[in-house]
Design a protein around this nucleic acid. Structure first.
Length: 126
DNA sequence: GCTATGACAAGGA
DNA sequence: CTCCTTGCCATAG
């Protein structure tokens, strides 16, 4: 398994209940700032959907964007609402309200370079 | 190593 | 706000 996948798993696995992250945010925390679409790919091919809270990952526009037949958008909506995250009928979410902002220690465990930590602070106010 | 493929992002219309 | 286009980059073939 590639480093990239491992990082994505590590990060998504630690997103707490009732919180969400964007694909781009996960990509940045994985050390590859513009690989947001690959994050979606990792979640898509993952067969560990029971261990991985994939439904807490949405796009930066605050929208559910899965097209996966086994993990539908409606399915994701239900899981999120069960955790207290409000999702409109148009599958939109107030992402800034629920966004997961990891503490410095979390980022240290990922051995993330300062450059990326700075970008996270700049973009998401971590 | 090259091309096609996306559960994306950002900016323009 | 909603589409559309362009840029991105890890994988699959």
């Amino acid at each position: 398994m590639s480093k990239f996948k491992e990082k994505v798993f590590e990060i998504v696995r630690r997103v707490p209940e009732g919180k969400v992250v964007s694909y781009g945010q996960v990509a940045l925390m994985a050390g590859i700032p513009r690989a947001a679409i690959q994050v979606g790919w990792v979640l898509h091919i993952s067969d560990e959907s029971d261990k991985l809270p994939w439904w807490r990952v949405i796009n930066n526009a605050g929208r559910i964007s899965t097209t996966c037949l086994e993990h539908t958008a409606q399915n994701q909506k239900e899981k999120l609402e069960k955790e207290g995250v409000k999702v409109t009928k148009n599958l939109k979410i107030d992402i800034e309200k629920y966004r997961f902002r990891p503490n410095p220690k979390f980022l240290q465990n990922l051995s993330l370079e300062d450059e990326y930590i700075f970008k996270l602070m700049e973009k998401y106010g971590i």
